[in-house]
């Protein structure tokens, strides 16, 4: 089984690691390009996009992650801020760094401020019998997709907006499965992207 790294510069990386460990998947923190060399997949957690912009550039992980993703050796799963980073463009903030792994444009804090953060039950189409019972999706100052390319596959929507999607080797979602005990999305990432 390949080891999965969780980008640990800032954000809720600990909860992702805990989730992976509970599932019996080997996991580690990624803080430097050297850490990145040891992993076969990367989760980018929730956090603050402006902070991450500074820390990614400073650590050199902006280039290191891009390089490994483009040569096909690094499947990536981004949650919330992680989803913003996987996008091609960030609305209103063209100066902020993003990887452009998925052909979409996203808007930050699109549901409003923290008092508008919420949790809701949503249905997902993940295959492998993971459909069935709804998923408790937690949205914290979450982003929204404002433009989606034709090549992007959508697995879940909330009020018709896409909230879980993939393109090529990259999975992204605007909600936080790591804040719950439900490991179906993490399992989907491991089975269909990392170990595929």
């Amino acid at each position: 089984m390949k080891k999965i790294g969780v980008l640990a510069l800032q954000g809720d990386f600990e909860l992702h690691i805990k989730m992976l460990e509970t599932m019996g998947a080997p996991a580690c923190e990624v803080r430097t390009p050297a850490d990145l060399r040891t992993v076969g997949g990367l989760i980018i957690p929730g956090g603050e996009t402006t902070t991450m912009d500074r820390l990614l550039r400073f650590s050199g992980l902006d280039k290191a992650v891009s390089r490994r993703f483009r040569n096909g050796t690094l499947p990536v799963y981004g949650t919330c801020m992680g989803m913003i980073l996987t996008a091609r463009e960030i609305e209103e903030y063209p100066e902020l760094f993003c990887f452009g792994f998925i052909d979409m444009k996203v808007a930050r804090n699109a549901y409003g401020r923290q008092v508008d953060s919420f949790e809701a039950d949503v249905k997902m189409k993940l295959g492998n019998g993971a459909n069935g019972k709804p998923f408790n999706a937690v949205f914290i100052r979450a982003p929204q997709v404002v433009e989606l390319g034709a090549g992007v596959e959508v697995y879940a929507r909330h009020n018709s907006l896409p909230i879980l999607m993939s393109q090529g080797n990259c999975l992204a979602g605007s909600f936080h499965p790591e804040l719950t005990d439900d490991s179906r999305v993490h399992k989907f990432f491991i089975d269909n992207f990392v170990e595929a």
Binding site: L9, G11, E14, G46, G47, E48, S117, E119, I140
Partner: peptide, 12 residues
């Protein structure tokens, strides 16, 4: 949802 935001602020 409330402590969720604090989780996102970790390491900051």
């Amino acid at each position: 949802v409330k402590s969720g935001l604090a989780e996102m602020l970790k390491g900051g």
